[in-house]
Design a binder for these strands. Sequence first.
DNA 1: GTAAGATCTGACACTGACGTCAGAGGCACA
DNA 2: TGTGCCTCTGACGTCAGTGTCAGATCTTAC
Lengths: 128, 128
Amino acid sequence: MAWGHTMARTGEMMRIGELAGQAGVSVRALRYYEEQGLLTSERSPSDQRYYTEDAVDRVRLIQLLYAAGLNSKAVRDIMPCMDSGMASTSMLELLATERDRIDERMRELAETRDRLTTVIEQGRATRG
Amino acid sequence: MAWGHTMARTGEMMRIGELAGQAGVSVRALRYYEEQGLLTSERSPSDQRYYTEDAVDRVRLIQLLYAAGLNSKAVRDIMPCMDSGMASTSMLELLATERDRIDERMRELAETRDRLTTVIEQGRATRG
DNA sequence: GTAAGATCTGACACTGACGTCAGAGGCACA
DNA sequence: TGTGCCTCTGACGTCAGTGTCAGATCTTAC
């Protein structure tokens, strides 16, 4: 599976279905991520996408960021620093902003959970 | 503002615009909540909605539950127990399930925040 | 009584992250 | 050389939580 000089790595690469399976997302989602500029792929001469193992972690990170309430644009903006570990001052601000947003969401979640817990305790007490 | 025997409370009531303002949501959202069975209102003879003060907290709770990732149906299902403090066994299970879901979301958020923090620290170290 | 603003009921628009389908082509195995 | 599964692009569908608009009615202030 080496289609010439365009290949980056000679290690085993996987096609989109396998990546989807390993990362626990749909094939459609992966194509969508690529469309949004969050994920890249090598293409075979017949335009089939091929990925390295690294892509699995990357996809999981994307999912984490989505789950944290970031949208495609926000994810696209911060992915470069997540990759490189390098960040300009403005990037650092962006990262800090997103982190603060996550903290805020965690506070809200904690409040909601506490309210649910209260009701649960109350209900258990009521019915012995 | 007493339109007869249908009125529940003689205390001051507010119209939809004021509730929206106090609860920090749009008028449209309030009508949607009612449509979904999450919020009720007294109606004047000319079909204008009137709310008591309690509605403010209720709307905030709805928002909290939405923010926690519950959809309309889930909110509708658990609101009765939130109101009454009473819950059947199956209701308690439902509440516990939702609480566990929230715990899981909090864990994910914590992980994401930690990863962001790592990158931030790294970036700060890199540029002094 | 009249003008201004709030509210009413539909109903269609929109956004984001996909699902789903159609029609065409690729890959592997016999 | 078929056959069965995978993948491709493109495009429309979905779902939730609204935004927005139209046209009518209500309320409030002067």
